[in-house]
Deep mutational scan, measured.
Amino acid sequence: TFVEFNGKKVEYPTPEAAEKAAKKLAKKLNLKVTKKNGNYKLE
């Protein structure tokens, strides 16, 4: 499962880990999380 932000793509071993990381990053970077095709994107 990938988390995409600032043009970077980071892969996580589980969807749970990706979701957790996405939410944490979104909060830190003041972005919102969108889920697309099972992957997460911060914008």
Rank of each mutant, 00 (worst) to 15 (best):
T1I: 13
T1F: 15
T1C: 13
T1A: 11
T1K: 07
F2N: 04
F2L: 07
F2M: 07
F2P: 00
F2S: 07
V3I: 08
E4D: 05
E4K: 03
E4H: 06
F5W: 13
F5I: 07
N6E: 09
N6R: 13
N6M: 14
N6V: 05
N6L: 14
G7M: 05
G7E: 05
G7Y: 05
G7W: 04
G7L: 04
K9H: 08
V10T: 11
V10W: 15
V10A: 07
E11W: 15
E11S: 13
E11T: 13
E11C: 15
E11K: 14
Y12D: 00
Y12T: 00
Y12C: 04
Y12F: 12
P13I: 06
P13D: 10
P13W: 06
P13T: 09
P13C: 09
P13L: 09
T14G: 05
T14K: 03
T14L: 02
T14W: 03
T14H: 05
P15I: 09
P15E: 11
P15Y: 06
E16Q: 12
E16P: 03
E16D: 09
E16C: 12
E16R: 11
A17G: 06
A17Q: 11
A17K: 09
A17R: 07
A17E: 12
A17H: 07
A18F: 02
A18Q: 01
A18G: 04
E19Q: 09
E19K: 11
E19T: 05
E19I: 08
K20T: 11
K20D: 10
A21G: 05
A21L: 04
A21I: 07
A21W: 07
A21P: 00
A22G: 02
A22E: 00
A22D: 00
A22F: 03
A22V: 08
K23M: 15
K23V: 12
K23C: 15
K23R: 14
K23I: 13
K24R: 14
K24A: 14
K24D: 12
L25N: 01
L25T: 03
A26H: 01
A26N: 01
A26L: 02
K27F: 10
K27E: 10
K27N: 09
K28I: 13
K28Q: 11
K28Y: 11
K28C: 14
K28G: 06
K28S: 10
K28D: 08
K28P: 02
K28A: 13
L29P: 00
L29K: 05
N30C: 14
N30F: 08
N30I: 04
N30Q: 10
N30K: 11
N30W: 06
N30H: 13
L31M: 12
L31C: 07
K32T: 12
K32H: 09
K32S: 09
K32C: 14
K32M: 10
V33C: 12
V33F: 06
V33T: 04
T34I: 13
T34F: 10
T34M: 09
T34W: 06
K35M: 14
K35S: 08
K35V: 14
K35F: 15
K35C: 14
K35I: 15
K36M: 14
K36D: 14
K36H: 14
K36S: 14
K36Q: 14
N37A: 08
N37G: 11
G38S: 05
G38N: 08
G38A: 05
N39Q: 09
Y40E: 02
Y40V: 04
Y40L: 07
Y40F: 13
K41R: 11
K41Y: 15
K41C: 14
L42Y: 01
L42F: 05
L42M: 04
L42V: 13
L42G: 01
E43Y: 14
E43V: 14
E43L: 10
